[in-house]
Amino acid sequence: MNYATPLHRVAWPFADAADAYRYSTNVVGGRTAIETPAGRWGDTVTAVDATYETVLAYRRAILDRDPRRCAVAPHLRVAAWDALLCVLDLLAADHPDAMTLHREPGPAFRWENRRSGTVQRFAFGDESSLPCPPLEFAAREAVEDLFLLEPRNGSLVLEGAASTFAGSWSPVFDLRMTFDELHGPVPRLHGMGIVERTERFLLALPPGEIVRRTNWSLHDAGDLDASLENAHRHQPAQAMGTGNLDLGELRLRIEVQHLIRLPMSGCLLFLIENQLCPLAAIATIPAWAYQLATVLERLPDDIAAYKNLLGFHPEVVAWLRENSRKSSEQAGTERDSLKPEHRH
């Protein structure tokens, strides 16, 4: 798979005028629209664009061949149904021309997805009324990875996952871990108090409120499935940066994360849309290329390693500067400046 998110809806993860990247909670309200030099994103929680059918087919194929990717702790039955309803509600609200959720007495529902062709009647809480478990059904209708976090004794525990596009981690391995343990491998994060603060923020999130943040890394392939479960299918571009690799094909991998407190179970639903943006596409937006080059150049080594940059860091920076300069010259324009009120 050689995927690229349509440029106009790329969720550029660096705040305006940011020339350095540091961790923060960087949370905003859901459905906050953001204008970018390439277009606009953020009006919806769920992503359904021209690539939806392709990505959904890939997602379903992965779920078919690797059932480990969908696992919900048995005691989270209510949360799984809560999550299903939430996801279908979001899809129908975000894309009313293509998707509808009718509520019938019971409570029962009729879901219609005119893009995927799914028509399904089901009764809430009745596993026999669905062709697969509820969280999996939701995952087969949306391109976002779905995670369930259960609040327990003042901390959050990952107790459910339907994930085909995780970035360099193993949701299967991490199931049953606390928020703190999950983020163990991330350098510096704990030292800044961010994990603890974020966890407390999430624990206090009331039902109905949707919050959003972004995350980013670099990947050497256009395969959305960057999970450790899939690592054996990739041949890494020989320590990225040696002559053979076209650096323009490297992907900036962006996660658009939404968090919602589910009302009937009290669990948190985490939706993660995974976007891939080739450096060659970024180079066509001089402001982006400039900003990314500067951020990468100033990135401390330990964070760089975690973001998959180890071994080719200077080459990528040089490539970006070189190719954005070319792109600017070709376009005959000065470097764009992002409008100051566009904050992430």
Binding site: D180, R188, G191, M192, G193
Partner: peptide, 17 residues
């Protein structure tokens, strides 16, 4: 969004899993 819990400045020791 800001939230009282997000405005905390307490340093936290680094840890792994």
């Amino acid at each position: 969004l800001t939230h009282p819990a997000a405005a905390d400045d307490i340093a936290w020791p680094p840890r792994t899993s």
